[in-house]
Design a binder for these strands. Sequence first.
DNA 1: CAGAGAGGTACCACGATATTG
DNA 2: ACAATATCGTGGTACCTCTCT
Lengths: 324, 324
Amino acid sequence: MIDVARLAGVSHQTVSRVMNQAGGVTPEVRERVEEAIRQLRYRRNPAARALATSRSMNVGIVSFGLAQYGPSVTLTGIADEARAAGYATNIVSLMDVDRSTMREALGHLVTDSVDGIIVLAPVEAALAALGELETDMPLVMFHPGGAPATDRIRTDEIAGARLATEALLDAGHPTVHHVSGPPGWLGTTARIDGWAAVLAERGRPAHPPIPGDWTTESGYLAGLRLAEVPGVRAVFAGNDQMALGVMKAFADLGLRVPEDVSVIGFDDVPESAFFRPGLTTVNFDFAEVGRRAVDQLLRLLDGHDPGPAPPIRPKLILRESARV
Amino acid sequence: MIDVARLAGVSHQTVSRVMNQAGGVTPEVRERVEEAIRQLRYRRNPAARALATSRSMNVGIVSFGLAQYGPSVTLTGIADEARAAGYATNIVSLMDVDRSTMREALGHLVTDSVDGIIVLAPVEAALAALGELETDMPLVMFHPGGAPATDRIRTDEIAGARLATEALLDAGHPTVHHVSGPPGWLGTTARIDGWAAVLAERGRPAHPPIPGDWTTESGYLAGLRLAEVPGVRAVFAGNDQMALGVMKAFADLGLRVPEDVSVIGFDDVPESAFFRPGLTTVNFDFAEVGRRAVDQLLRLLDGHDPGPAPPIRPKLILRESARV
DNA sequence: CAGAGAGGTACCACGATATTG
DNA sequence: ACAATATCGTGGTACCTCTCT
């Protein structure tokens, strides 16, 4: 910066003003400084800046289950939005989620002095661990189906499950069977809640959900079991992979989708449009989850209470797997 | 740090020595300092440290296709290994790969003054873009099927494709059909090369590969086409999703796997063990790719030429989808 | 004597180096 | 010779001062 100042014939302070888009610089001087910056290919040193401002311009991310579709898409949303706001993205990945791993992850990020943290671990264990750990660091977590709160970004998965269930009932099916995700995941609970609420409202029989584990295989097994239930007309699966498995089991057993049974999935993974039949499913914009998490965190960093962020709304994507 | 020094009754320099595990401190003094550190919950300021040492202790990652299984697992490997070495992980995700997006991504990381960069974008466009861009920053890229080089971490995907093809031929099948990945991906080329080489060596007919796009659906379409080819006995698919699609097409058309046709996949995604039938496939340790990339980069940062890193070797995972 | 543009100086929290006990 | 200290440099920003319409 000193070199730039010398070349432009000004003080380093003026160069700083130019770099920070601060006012109080003559257009003429500003141009001279900018030319010097270009000429010397100057980039300011973020460490020095961080030291002087006590802001690292880094956001930390604690992530779990990155190999899943939703979280990985959300991660890119976070990275993009943070970048756009001038923040870098510092990631810690978790193998398991419990109090000690969470404490360790947060500790790493605190040591790296990030300005704020986003927790991308939509499981109950994460919630519990965060509840027990006290941090003064601004923190936003992803909470599928959660209640409004300043530190949460919510996908309204209860509404998503309702959309699917209502669509199936509206189509005239007597009830809807549910293949759920594994216990412990926030999304599993939310989807069960939404589905059960609609059945209760309309006085339809609610068969106990058949638990899967998000995999296609578990969906297949659930499908085999469902096929034996007399009068199965409509199935709502907790994610698209399980819906795929259900459909495969039905196909193997000679049940036609959607002629005999309607199936609706959840997530709208890119492949779901290409399943056979194309899967009717519930879409959430997971990248938007990431972007909003960053926005919310930045507002928190600004100091004034932003209030709860609005939830991400579901969209029912109509394809061929369900007669609605 | 000054507070710690004051509390321990020493100079800040001595505290620095203790923090850095440097010698030249009496055990007694060291203990006093460590007690003071504990008491004040002191953590050193990474920005100040970065400024003084001109090392940010950050590695940058340029990633593409994070929603894919391989890259996302590799990312966690990178994050873990970097963390273990005291480095934080700074991620930039790419939507498209071309010269300008790559330049921009590297520019961001340079601005953030990372100490080194790992490029996780196994497509030819990335290779080309990096070739044209000159950076003095230490950089390691993931290069499936690539030749040995100091700045590359290689998975020996040619060997992986050979394993699959040889196993099928050894089982007595007259030849092997290949469902390839989309053009432009380094893995696509490597897998085709390995497959073709084995067929050539053994004088077997090589039908042109049927190109897919990594999705289950494209595998399904390829399976429909393959089923019409007379005498199809063995199929090697470029990844597990496509293998799943192929098997589904065969099932729909009444071809039994493995009785009528053997199928081998590639990647060994966690679900593949649960496909029906369980998928014989080629495993690579993608997390290890990430760990080695970090190790190699750290050696580069050390200054002395580490030589090419050894390639990641494939393993054939025998399950039920192929009679071998 | 305002007020705007520019410069001067202290300070951020460390590590490196030379120096002292 | 060894432990511990004092001083300086790192590259910026914040705040105060100066100068000139």
